[in-house]
Amino acid sequence: MDTMKKRWISIYVENEIGVLARISGLFSGKSYNIDTLTVGVTEDPTMSRMTIGVTSDDKTFEQIKKQLNRSVEVIKVMDFTDLPIHMKELMFVKVNSCTEKDKAEAFRIAQVYGVKIEDYNKNTILFECTMTEDKNNSLLKLLSETYGYRLEVVRGGAVAIEAVSYTER
């Protein structure tokens, strides 16, 4: 049995109604689990680009790529797993019921991680984090250790593009 590992695919698809359903249906119909999927229109308005993250073994991942490739709506499939890329994910974290001490700690954390405190009031703080998925994960771990159940999290899913000179994932 191959080892399970995190993989990334970037695909160009037709920007049409139903294509997202077709792609997600292909995953669910064949019991492939999607970790994350983002989609948005590209420089060409007739095309969208999806960044898809999956955790799978080699064999399943090969099948996923082949199945995507044979879909009429899919224009191009790129395996980003081992390519030099830049990948970022937008994550909002709201901390509720903050004390003054909590807030001071929040600013320290934001400074160290290089993320923004986008908004706050007397007892709530909102982090806006645009980092790699891994870094967002570590920050989130720290925040939940610090603030526990008071967190509210919204994650946007990763977007990725081929690197120009260095890689960051």
């Binding site: 109604i17 139903g18 359903a21 249906g25 009429v72 709506e73």
Partner: peptide, 16 residues
């Protein structure tokens, strides 16, 4: 019907 048949045909489309 496009939604229903999406996973059991080669290609399905509604003319819009």
């Amino acid at each position: 019907i496009v939604g229903v048949t999406r996973n059991i045909c080669k290609y399905a489309v509604t003319v819009r």
